[in-house]
Design a protein around this nucleic acid. Structure first.
Length: 564
RNA sequence: GGACCUAUAGCCUAGCCUGGACAAGGCGACGGCCUUCUAAGCCGUAGAUCGAGGGUUCGAAUCCCUCUAGGUCCA
């Protein structure tokens, strides 16, 4: 950023500090009236043996404004620098209007990133925990793409094992060959709940599940056939939900294909002396140096454990995508698992070992406690989408009762999805949050619809005027307009921050700031009825705001409506 | 027994990486603003020992140590 560099240059001459030192302490003041950059004079007070306030005054006398830095003043111990607004206004607004959808994007970096999401089990439908996972997943994908990386979403599907056999058994007991009479993944999930109920009364069912698992492993024709059928129902259901969410997985990796693999890798590691043989015959790795203890990789009976499959799968993915980075979007309860996995990668000498990142996110909790699929105490993704859509429909009708049905439907869809998507990514990912079905999804305050509304309002103004394209940039001089332009200028940096910290919440926070600042401006000033030169400038400015709101919402997969 | 994460107004959060000028929003409460570009909005009032204690520093919500509470994982 040239303004900052110029300020540093100016300071370099008079303070005799090095560029890096100045860069380290030069900050942005808490409010715009205090300027664009501030140099705190405290650190000079020791060497100069003067009060910081006095130093600021002395330095000011030696300084002269430049074309870009048009004003310098002191405020107590701070030396404050002001950017020439006319230059800044023009630069920011014209850049946005020229680059349009590409404003904020970085140049391609020639790096391929894999994002793993959401990793469901095929015995139940997707609940709001998966929803958080998927929405974080697509947001991360979009943000990284905007940052210049190539991103592919892959999935790991846990389609086998004890839990799957539980729904199989329940279907055999209660299903009686019935075909799905509701959304098929919900149909499958019901049997998982039924099993949990049945096993309470009859604990012996656990043995039957184990027997079924054994049959599955032996490739029993009848069991495999039913397993395939029930899984196909689950997939059909997921596909519907994915579609509603516009969620696309490029390649799915199935546990049933990989659970026997990884063994060769472990045995080779054992031969190379990287792993150890236990007394009982199991193979393990000593991760005590890393503080992770002894980790079993191959059971005494020779079967693979979860982590073994993950090693295998990572190699498969490398073959398929030649990725440079891999991001696992998985809940925080698996933090230990991934620490161990990445350490093993390292021991095995895999180059991608330090390019793996566990995107750990907190649990979605309910007022009634933890979500448990087997007890049916979950908030289902499909139900939630439908419910919020119904509320949005009512809200639209309440305001515009003459609208056609299709228009109401269209708006309600955009608004309800905006509310859901925004809500699930607006918290710092690491934090657990409480989901209160009746309170959490509002359309007011810090929500997706709030941002969408600002966009719709701008659109509405723009429809009532002709953009002459003649802009007098110095006409934008109120502090509200300056605040808006500073925010617009920050957008590319926000993408970079969100991409390097893997935090979509940085984008939601930014959009709320921008929308809010715009709303304040909107209430205080007129666009259409302003003086001609001011009007032209404001039109250009709100066009730019509209563009950035739309771009930012786009990163979260949210539509920016023209009308609301 | 060991490790990790979290703690900011009644409630939900931002700020912590990279220390700096009165700790910023939202919900809820109370009071205002639609004959002016969309009131899903705006303005105002009340509301904070930044979990506790210590340390580093000219300066700590932010860095370091100890403790407490909640959550999670490993054995």
């Amino acid at each position: 950023m040239k303004y900052r560099e110029e300020t540093i240059k100016i300071l370099e001459k008079v303070t005799k500090l090095k560029k890096v030192q100045i860069d380290n302490i030069l900050e942005v003041p808490p409010s715009l009236e205090m300027g664009d950059f501030a140099f705190p004079c405290f650190i000079l007070s020791k060497t100069l043996k003067k009060a910081p306030n006095q130093i600021a005054e002395d330095l000011l006398k030696k300084l002269k404004p430049t074309k870009n830095i048009s004003k310098i003043e002191t405020k107590g111990p701070y030396l404050n620098f002001f950017i020439n607004k006319e230059v800044l206004n023009k630069e920011v607004i014209s850049k946005i209007l020229k680059e349009k959808k590409d404003y904020g994007k970085s140049k391609p970096k020639k790096l391929t990133v894999l994002v793993e999401s959401p990793g469901q089990n095929t015995n139940k439908p997707l609940h709001v925990g998966h929803l958080r996972n998927m929405l974080l997943g697509v947001s991360i994908k979009n943000i990284l793409e905007a940052f210049g990386k190539e991103v592919h979403i892959v999935n790991v599907i846990n389609d086998r094992g004890v839990h799957i056999c539980k729904s199989l058994l329940a279907y055999k007991m209660f299903g009686k060959g019935k075909k799905p009479d509701k959304k098929p993944d919900h149909f499958v999930g019901d049997f998982y709940v039924k099993y949990a109920e049945a096993v309470k009364k009859n604990p012996k069912l656990e043995e039957e599940v184990q027997a079924l698992l054994l049959k599955w492993e032996q490739g029993d024709k009848e069991v495999i056939k039913l397993w395939k059928e029930m899984n196909s129902w689950a997939y059909k259901g997921y596909a519907e939900t994915y579609k509603k969410l516009n969620f696309k997985v490029e390649k799915a990796y199935y546990e049933s294909n990989s659970y026997k693999h990884g063994k060769e890798i472990v045995l080779k590691g054992l031969k190379d002396g990287k792993f150890e043989k236990e007394e009982d015959g199991a193979v393990s790795i000593n991760l005590k140096k890393e503080g992770l203890g002894q980790k079993v990789l191959l059971r005494a009976n020779g079967t693979a454990v979860y982590i073994t499959q993950d090693i295998y799968m990572a190699k498969e993915r490398l073959k398929d995508f030649k990725f440079d980075e891999m991001i696992y979007i998985v809940g925080n309860e698996q933090e230990y698992h991934f620490k161990a996995l990445f350490s093993i990668f390292k021991r095995l000498g895999y180059k991608f070992a330090d390019k793996c990142y566990h995107f750990s996110y907190g649990m979605v909790e309910l007022p009634t406690g933890k979500m448990k699929s087997r007890e049916g105490t979950v908030v289902d993704t499909d139900d939630l989408i439908e419910e919020v859509y119904q509320i949005a429909t009512r809200e639209v009708k309440k305001r515009y009762f003459t609208l056609s049905k299709t228009e109401i439907d269209k708006r309600a869809k955009i608004i309800s999805m905006g509310a859901i998507r925004f809500f699930f990514v607006k918290y710092d990912p690491i934090k657990n949050f409480m989901f209160k079905p009746n309170e959490s999804l509002s359309f007011e305050g810090e929500t997706g619809p709030y941002v969408q509304y600002a966009h719709a309002r701008i659109n509405s103004i723009l429809k009532k005027c002709i953009d002459t394209g003649i802009v007098d940039y110095k006409a934008l001089k109120t502090k509200d307009e300056q605040a808006l332009i500073s925010l617009l200028a920050e957008y590319p940096k926000k993408i970079e921050e969100a991409a390097t910290h893997y935090k979509p919440s940085i984008i939601t926070r930014y959009l709320l700031d921008l929308a809010q600042t715009f709303n304040e401006f909107y209430h205080k000033y007129q666009v259409l009825k302003a003086d001609e030169n001011v009007k032209g400038a404001r039109i250009a400015m709100i066009l730019a705001i509209k563009q950035v709101l739309s771009n930012g919402l786009g990163l979260l997969g949210i539509d920016a409506p023209g009308k609301m």
